[in-house]
Amino acid sequence: MNYLERRVIHGVLLLAGVSVLCFAFGVMAPGDFFDEMKLNPQISPATVAALRSQYGIDQPLPLRYGRWVESVLRGEWGYSFAYNCPVRSLLMVRAGNTLLLTTLATLLAWLIALPLGVWTANRRGRWDDRLGLAGTTLLLSVPELVIALVLLYLAVRTHALPAGGMVSVGFGGLGKQAQLIDLASHLVIPAATLVLASLPLLVRHIRASVLEVLQAPFVQAARAHGIGGARLLFRYVLPAAANPLSSLLGLSIGGLLSGSLLVEVITGWPGMGPLLLEASLARDVHVVIGAVMASTFFMIAGSMVADVLLVVLDPRVRLGST
């Protein structure tokens, strides 16, 4: 079996494990979706019981899990009690929105962090390096919640940006270009929050990786052969630093995903975050499981991308060091 096949199988097993755990914890927690109805005097206990048996909540756990797996295989991903529709249709739209936000944020964060990390590593100990370190320390100590609130406050005060949601009212009536601009302006605050929150760790890791390579004997040797400047950086330093950095990429994708759930809730981005929150509060079990599964899937896919990148970039991994 080759590397990629093994990785895919690991991923599938991991997803199955997560689904079992999610299901067990979601169902074993006291209370369910219909408990609230019992408080309503207008609905008779018999009606509630009928509803519960209709949705299969009164059945034992393994059976319910089996039915859920069956519905997953049908492509429905369970059934939402609250929305009264299959989870899939709910989740696809939300997951797409989350993916749009996190992909953009990851891309932007790396585009900013990479040159910043490389620059500060090259200027180690000088004033700009110290400034960078101070800046990242400051950002590191501010929770993303605060960053989001500050940005929202600025948006509301200046009216420069929409302070929530994904599109403006009357989005459908706009032209293609205007639609794009509208979407982009709504993306600014959640994306900026995510970028600012993940930036300090990325910059520091990149700086540390590049510093380590800069001190490696082969970089010294390359300098002794008269190779310097940009050539040294792009041909020697960065390719050698790519190994730890591609692992970091996998981690940063996972980190941004979990971070985005919170940021989405605060900034009103209609991604999986608000959906997960509502569903958890309402005990809409299948939606919760679906959302968790989707983010697990993204995370596994992210680390797989990183691993494949590692194999492509590093001949020691690709060829097996003997």
Partner: peptide, 21 residues
């Protein structure tokens, strides 16, 4: 000058070559 007029051979050849090139 380095590499062109004055060159150097290092102690550990394995470490003085880039592992990814």
């Amino acid at each position: 000058i380095r590499g062109a007029r004055i060159a150097m051979v290092f102690q550990e050849p394995g470490l003085s070559l880039s592992p990814v090139m």
